[in-house]
Design a protein around this nucleic acid. Structure first.
Lengths: 161, 161
DNA sequence: CGCTTTTAGTTGTAGCGTCAAGTAACCCGC
DNA sequence: GCGGGTTACTTGACGCTACAACTAAAAGCG
C-alpha cells in the first residue's frame, strides 16, 4: 500500500466517483433514448453530427473522428441506420475509396423529434445539478483529461449535440 | 434551437467534453489491463472489491452494489473469474438463496500483481493532470451528478481501488 | 510507368452486457 | 403451516463493440 506513487485519499475518492459516473451515465442516456426513440446514444450522436454537417453529409472517416469511434464500429452502425432508412451511403466522386454518409429526410425528422427529449435527459442527469461555476470547472477538468486520453486532440471538432 | 430549455454554449461545451471522457476512458483503462493482466476493468474492479472485504468474501448482491452492476452481469463475470481460478463460490449457510464469492489465493496474487500498473494508468490518464483544486472540484461535481444517476446512493460504499 | 506503402472502408467472429425468463429459498399474514 | 409475494441468483439468447483480415483505390518513389 505504500508504493512510490499511490493515490492520496482525496484523489482516490474523486477517482472512484469519476469511475462510477463513467459506468452509470451511458446506461442512463441509452435507456432514455432506447425507450423514446429506439436509438442508442451512439446512434443518436451519429445522426446529430450528420445533421449539423454541411449538406448533412460527411465522409466515414470524418464522421468517425467526430464521434470518437473506430471506422469499423461506425461502419456497422451506419449499416444499421441505413437499413432503418435514416442515412444513405454513396461513393465519393473525388476519392473512390471514400464513402459519404448522409442523413435522409426521415433521419432528419428523427433527430428533430428526438433531440428535445434527449436534452431533457441530459439536464435531468447532469446539467441541472450544476451551477455556472460547476460547469466551468467541469469543462476545464474534462479538457485536461482529454488532453491525455486523446493527445492529438483530433476529437469532436463539432460543437453541438 | 430555441426550445424552452436548450443548453447554453458553456453547458454544451462542458457536456460534450464529459461525453468524450465517458466514451474514451473505459477503452483506455481496459486496454492497459487487458494488455498487462488479461482483465477487463470491471473484472479488475470486482477482484479489488473482494480483496478489501472482510475475509475477502462478499455476497453476490453486496458485490453487485459495490461494483454498480446488475446481478446478472456480475453472475456472468464471476463465472468467468471462477473458471480462471481467481474466485470461488459457495452457498451461504445463513441464507440458502445467497451465494458467497471469495477471492482465492491466486486471485489475491493477481490483484497484488496488477494494482501498481493500473494505478499508474489511472495517474497517466487522469490524476496527474489535475492539481489539488481540480481534484476537489472533480469530486464535488461527480458527487452531484451521482446524486442524480443513483438517487438512492447505495453505490460503492467501498473506498479504494 | 511499375511496385510498394498508405489510406478508406467493409465484413466476420468472438466476447461482453442486457434483458427476459426461470428456479429456489425466505418471509409474512392468516 | 401454507399460499402469495419477494429476494437472490442463474441461464440463454440477442445485440453491440473490438479486433483482425480483407479489398480496393490513391500516393510515393525510383
Amino acid at each position: 500500500m505504500d508504493d512510490p506513487r499511490w493515490l492520496t485519499p482525496e484523489q482516490l475518492h474523486a477517482w472512484i466517483r469519476l469511475v462510477s459516473v463513467v459506468e452509470l451515465l451511458p446506461g442512463t442516456l441509452d435507456s432514455q433514448l432506447q425507450r423514446d426513440a429506439e436509438l442508442t446514444h451512439f446512434e443518436y450522436f451519429t445522426l446529430a453530427m450528420l445533421s449539423e454537417a454541411p449538406d448533412r453529409t460527411l465522409r466515414m472517416t470524418a464522421l468517425s473522428t467526430a464521434t470518437n469511434s473506430s471506422l469499423a464500429r461506425l461502419s456497422h452502425v451506419i449499416a444499421r441506420l441505413e437499413k432503418r432508412g435514416f442515412v444513405g451511403r454513396a461513393p465519393c466522386p473525388e476519392d473512390r475509396r471514400a464513402t459519404n454518409a448522409s442523413l435522409t429526410a426521415l433521419g432528419w425528422q428523427k433527430v428533430v423529434a428526438t433531440a428535445p427529449g434527449h436534452v431533457q435527459a441530459v439536464r435531468d442527469s447532469v446539467i441541472d445539478v450544476l451551477d455556472v461555476a460547476d460547469v466551468a470547472d467541469l469543462d476545464r477538468i474534462m479538457g485536461r483529461i482529454l488532453s491525455r486520453l486523446d493527445p492529438t486532440n483530433r476529437l469532436r471538432g463539432g460543437v453541438s449535440e
